[in-house]
Computed example of a mutant assay.
Amino acid sequence: MDAISDIYQVIETLGQGNFGMVLLAQDKITGEPVALKLVRKDRTQLKDFLRELGISIALSGCHGFITTYPMFYNTRDYYILPQELAPAGTLQDLIQAKVGMPEGVVKRCALQLSQALDYMHGIGLVHMDLKPDNVLLMDKEYFNIKLCDFGLSRKAGSFVSTRSHIIPYMSPELCDVKHDEYLILSPSVDTWALGVLLYFALTGYLPWMKAVEWDMDYLVFVHWQKHSNLILPPPSWQRFTREALAMFNKLLSRDCSARPSILCVLNFLHCPWNIHYLC
């Protein structure tokens, strides 16, 4: 921290994880608040940090992406990125557990997220880490949300290996990669993650913990997908309208080649998603 104390006054910690932390700080010259992203050197190789830095700066100024200032600091333990501050926090902070968020707000987020991700896909990039923690809120009404954290972002068509741990937003093809195998990366992994994120935002529950065959919640969902014309959806999915279930079926297609463009969400914004929303 001594390395940046001449430039910034650190105020508080905004978040912390396995790979580092985010601090709220104030520029001592301009007085402007900034977010300092500290990336642990013992968990991140320099080439990976520089890739994240390059992608972050390239996306800065584009609608739907947090601004990363074109500089970084190299301390003994951390690489440090100064970024635009999101005054309203993250989407994760505001999704109420077991309740979710109002449908209108979720649709507002779905519109902005799908457009931002479509921009990334259009320039050949895949985010690969879409989750509520990486969706920043610039206002409390959700009219301006921005994507952040491009540490896992890669070019579409890259070979990606197994991840150190599986999270609920990972697509089944990513979960299935073995230690001695590689997956050719497709934007469809972001499409899947958006489907999981929308379910969580609407309900306050995660649909499953891992998209693998031994996760019972995932297995029941896959069984319904295969026989949706014959059986009712699982109980946790029966709160959704026919149109919303059709949207989730597309976003969460187990066959990654069958998943449509991320913009398919736009075709469902005019339809009600929650059954109680009709009452």
Rank of each mutant, 00 (worst) to 15 (best):
D255C: 08
N134I: 04
E52I: 11
T44H: 10
A88I: 09
V10M: 07
F268M: 01
S164E: 12
L36A: 09
G20Y: 11
P102Y: 04
F248K: 02
P172H: 01
S114Y: 09
V189H: 02
M247I: 12
L152H: 14
G31L: 05
I167V: 14
L136A: 02
T162D: 07
D190T: 05
L263G: 07
D27Q: 07
H127G: 02
G20V: 08
I275Y: 04
Y205R: 12
T75F: 02
R51N: 15
I55D: 01
F150I: 04
A58C: 13
Q9R: 15
G157W: 13
A116N: 12
M247N: 06
K178Q: 14
C256I: 08
D6V: 05
F200S: 13
I123R: 13
M170K: 07
R254D: 02
A116Q: 08
T191M: 00
L198T: 05
G31N: 01
L269K: 10
D190E: 00
A35W: 11
Q26G: 07
F19C: 10
A211W: 12
L94S: 08
V212G: 00
Q26I: 15
S5H: 13
I4D: 08
P82E: 03
A116D: 02
W224H: 10
S228L: 05
N18D: 05
Y205L: 11
E103D: 04
D6Q: 13
I80E: 05
I29P: 00
K37M: 09
G124H: 11
D133T: 03
M128A: 07
P70W: 03
K41E: 06
G122K: 12
P207A: 00
L230E: 15
C279S: 11
Y169C: 01
Y218G: 06
M128L: 08
M120Q: 09
M1Q: 12
Y69C: 04
I11M: 10
P168Y: 01
P87L: 03
G157Y: 13
E181V: 10
V160S: 12
F49K: 04
P272L: 00
H127D: 01
D255H: 11
R76E: 15
F200I: 03
V177N: 10
G100Y: 07
G151K: 07
H63E: 13
S186V: 07
E141S: 12
P233H: 02
A246P: 02
P207N: 02
Q92G: 03
D27I: 10
P233T: 04
K226R: 15
L14N: 06
D129K: 06
F143M: 11
H227W: 11
K250A: 11
D2N: 14
N74V: 02
W192M: 00
P234Y: 02
D77P: 09
S253Q: 11
P207R: 04
M170A: 05
Y277R: 05
F143T: 14
Y78M: 07
V220F: 08
P233A: 02
F268P: 05
P168G: 01
Y8L: 10
L263N: 09
L245I: 10
N74T: 00
H270A: 12
S171R: 04
T191W: 00
M71L: 13
V34H: 12
R108E: 06
W214C: 04
P132G: 00
E243Y: 10
I231P: 08
S60T: 02
L91K: 08
I55M: 01
T90R: 14
M138F: 14
N267C: 03
P102M: 06
R76M: 12
